[in-house]
């Protein structure tokens, strides 16, 4: 195995394109090193992007935030303005692993691992985040929900690498929230995750995005669930409809972390609870 730490994304793309065997990009490394250890992935090349200038930066852009590919959970959550705009995204990322993992784990890495149970991804999807992708043909921006195509599969082409994540302008009267269910209080992979981002017009929900994790092969953007609460002030009927649509959208598996029945039911419960928090935040 080769280890390379290029000083630009151009160089990173060149290295990735030149590799005949298997290559892995190292951002925080909290998934890649586990895979190496287990022998489930045996790459020929590791490209460590953390020495590329700017990858640890969070910068204001068009009223939103551009987050470098190597920004860790610790760095993200230390950014007060971003956390004020997108508390749900910040909290979702903060839920990943331990204090120690937070010192390394990145939004970009969480997205690229493409686990259906990734905590930060539903929050980013609900927020309408995009990923900037660089390859040999230049750069493109892609919606976060279009990155993962199945468990541990991504839509990136050979040699492509995500250079940053963009969280759009929060705008007035908006709020977001992410909740996950785990058996313990920490250190578990989400059995179900639910993120809601919404804006208010007075007491009524003007717009909403609802995203679910760990209930399907990919993180879901559930339009029906959003429609269930748009135009309402989260009255009981709207909440019941939100829960029902969220549960109906689930296509989970039974595994060591939970059953189909459990995941389906909990998705509805968490969607309601997350919507309530997002609503309260939007009210300010």
């Amino acid at each position: 195995m080769q280890y390379q730490a290029p000083d630009s994304f151009d160089a990173a793309v060149t290295l990735l394109n030149a590799e005949q065997g298997m290559a892995r990009v190292l951002a925080g490394g909290t998934d890649v090193l586990v895979q190496l250890r287990a022998g489930t992935v045996e790459p020929d090349l590791i490209v460590d992007i953390k020495r590329i200038p700017g990858v640890h930066d969070i910068t204001a852009e068009d009223g939103g935030w551009r987050i470098g590919a190597a920004v860790s959970g610790v760095e993200l959550n230390a950014h007060a303005d971003l956390c004020a705009d997108w508390p749900g995204v910040a909290e979702a990322h903060d839920l990943i692993g331990s204090t120690q993992v937070q010192g390394r784990a990145t939004l970009t890495g969480n997205l690229c691992t493409a686990s259906p149970a990734a905590d930060s991804v539903p929050a980013m999807v609900a927020a309408g985040a995009t990923a900037r992708v660089q390859g040999s043909n230049g750069t493109r921006d892609v919606a976060v929900e279009a990155v993962g195509t199945g468990p541990f599969k991504v839509s990136l082409a050979q040699g492509e690498v995500i250079t940053s994540i963009f969280l759009p302008a929060r705008g007035a009267n908006g709020g977001d929230a992410y909740l996950r269910f785990i058996p313990r209080t920490e250190m578990d992979i989400a059995v179900v995750g639910a993120a809601v981002s919404l804006t208010l017009d007075g007491d009524k929900v003007a717009s909403a995005r609802v995203s679910l994790g760990a209930v399907a092969p990919t993180v879901l953007l559930v339009e029906g669930a959003a429609n269930a609460i748009i135009g309402t002030s989260l009255d009981d009927a709207a909440m019941d409809k939100l829960a029902a649509t969220a549960s109906a959208a689930c296509n989970p598996i039974s595994d060591k972390r939970g059953t189909v029945e459990f995941r389906t039911k909990i998705a509805g419960v968490l969607a309601k609870r997350a919507a309530k928090i997002a609503y309260d935040r939007a009210k300010g």
């Binding site: 058996p183 313990r184 209080t185 920490e186 250190m187 578990d188 992979i189 595994d255 060591k256």
Partner: peptide, 16 residues
Amino acid sequence: LQNAGFLDYRIPVASD
């Protein structure tokens, strides 16, 4: 064995 690690063999953590 499906859970041969501390991730899914869930011993109590301090916050539990």
